[in-house]
Write a protein that binds this DNA or RNA. Structure first.
Lengths: 211, 211
DNA sequence: TAGATTGTTAATCGATTAACAATC
DNA sequence: TAGATTGTTAATCGATTAACAATC
């Protein structure tokens, strides 16, 4: 089987497909034709078909569409939701604390093992049943627990130094919620930036366009 | 002057340019040539020039580059950071609460006026000096305070109904942190989605590619 | 069979990259 | 003047959209 090249735009769409498919399944649907999905995605049936072809293990059936269970399974396998991954949260401030409590990560197969914070006061009580450790235990915990992913929610002055420690300790991916540029590490670790400033710029521009 | 078409990708880049330019200014730089910026952005000098040309009010100078203060000012005007905009946070849970406390919004020109929550207990004390009001005051506050932007951090079952109320009350833009599809409202209001599932899918894919 | 939906191949569109003349 | 950087125009690249034959 030939491996298809999958663009970042496609990858960003797959979780949205999955959400819609689960909704349709909950409504009792068993077979989904691409025009139905295109409608929900505000896209075209051609794009839906190409996207599904790229990740599906079985072909669609002309005149019917695709089996919804197969498709959900293919998407979950592609997205890795079926494989459990251990993660930790670095910086248990307002945002980090919110993510300690967020239940939605479990649906990605993401298991938040614990948090880390440089403030000793924060390490004195559990959040959502998870320990918050002091920073000097970082390397030890990553290695012993075989943690793969770090959710980075620290103040920006600490972001780069801590990221280097994460890489050296064996972290495979950094989900970067700071505004700091970590690109110098991207040969050694997967980095995904969540940039509120970019997102807000898009909102502003849309507001101005609507006027 | 002819208006240039600016793509969403460009718009997402502008806040990142601004950050780098402010860093360079802090280091004492007064003139920036595009190769320097391209290096920081991990992009090409051609792209940098095109991006700046699209939003700048003055041309660059061959052999010198561009004046850093002019550029910062042009970017801030384009991004609307110089215009104060009132916003409110709907749903003061973990994430909404974190955003009530987040200081970074001020740099976008965003003034978080207050929060709203359906839980009466939450309305009894201020967060970061801001009131949390019960939901039945929503329309009144939006109109009296002339609020433009809503930051939506409610549980997903409430997202669509509340969004309709926001639109009817005159909100211009919804920054949607829920996983709910609000596209049916997009003719009436600007909507920008922050989708953690898509972002995480990109991280996972990068991790798998590095292996 | 007829027709809806599939998958493939070709055309279009848009963004990035390259080439190069203009200029301080 | 020489040369670095600009802005413009052309070429390339990639993703989306369109066209259409295949098929259940």
């Amino acid at each position: 089987m030939e491996k298809k090249i999958i663009s970042t735009k496609q990858i960003a769409r797959y979780p949205i497909y999955l959400k819609h498919l689960k909704d349709l399944k909950a409504e009792g649907l068993e077979i989904v034709p691409s025009p139905i999905i295109a409608e929900l995605m505000n896209s075209s049936e051609e794009q839906v078909r190409k996207d599904f072809q790229a990740i599906s293990t079985s072909p669609g059936k002309p005149r019917y569409g695709r089996n919804i269970d197969d498709l959900i399974n293919d998407l979950e396998v592609f997205l890795g939701y079926n494989k459990l991954k251990k993660a930790l949260i670095i910086g248990v401030g307002h945002l980090g604390g919110a993510y300690m409590n967020y239940r939605g990560f479990a649906s990605f197969g993401l298991n938040i093992v614990c948090g880390f914070d440089s403030n000793i006061e924060k390490t004195k009580e559990k959040i959502n049943d998870k320990f918050v450790y002091p920073m000097d235990l970082l390397e030890k915990v990553i290695k012993e627990e075989k943690i793969e992913i770090a959710i980075l929610t620290v103040p920006k002055d600490y972001a780069l130094d801590i990221s280097k420690r994460l890489v050296n300790a064996g972290i495979k991916g950094i989900w970067n919620f700071t505004s700091v540029d970590l690109d110098e590490l991207k040969e050694k670790v997967a980095i995904e930036n969540v940039n509120l400033a970019s997102s807000f710029a898009l909102l502003s521009h849309k507001i101005n366009s609507l006027k």
